[in-house]
Design a protein around this nucleic acid. Sequence first.
DNA 1: AAATGGTTCAACCGCGGAATA
DNA 2: ATATTCCGCGGTTGAACCATT
Length: 247
Amino acid sequence: MATHSALQAVQRRGPWLQEEDRRLTMFVTRMGERKWDSIAKASGLERSGKSCRFRWLNYLRPNLKRDRINSKEEEIIMKLHKKWGNKWSRIARWLPGRTDNEIKNYWNTHIKRKLLSRGIDPTTHRAIIDPSPATTISFTSNSAVEDQEDRKKQVNDSSPTEKRHLLDLNLDLKISPPYPVAAGAATTKNEGRNSLCFSCSLGFENSKDCSCGNGKNNIIASSDNSKGFDFLGLKSCVLDCRTLEIK
DNA sequence: AAATGGTTCAACCGCGGAATA
DNA sequence: ATATTCCGCGGTTGAACCATT
């Protein structure tokens, strides 16, 4: 049996024309963001439903950011990539206005190269070559903390040559919520620091990852804030590379 | 000014899983 | 229960653009 796509007339490919964009926008608005093959047919566009979906999601959809990814977003991408790997759509959900395709491109063209130039494996986020002993390590998950403790043990049990390779460079950046310096509130550096969790500070107030109580400015329940800020089940900590101590 | 090489990113492809007939 | 269609994802490609020689 011939597939649906095989029955289609010759389909256009390549860059979209303004008129095509206009028509697609009109029909998606009318028919909703489903049934892309139907939209493709109804609109009279000589494009596949798949192509229409892609164009809409990555270019025409409202509220897309068109400016370049900034350093804050880059930090988030790095952080989430370490946690989830190449799960671009999942990462994109944490960056409003950004598409998975955009993040994937940015990763491959900017971050990946940046990490490689620093001797970091972009897949594992671990050092490819001997790390500088003076490098500060920050932001690591609970499991990563355990990993580090395991590694610390391994290092102690290893020969000097092995130690060089077991020492691990982690250039993850520490992500913190903006300090809410409410009028007359914080007088010291740490006061009021935890009134918004990272999830809420990104605008995801009802997220399951919210740790402050749906944006109600609750203080994090954690009894030990000195260990860092919890985000997505991770703790932000600082690990001294020389002593391998969590601070 | 032209040639060359590198970079960027929009778009396509193939696959797997979910939904539907 | 099975076949087919639809959808979404991650990987890859290639044209356009930019920088350098």
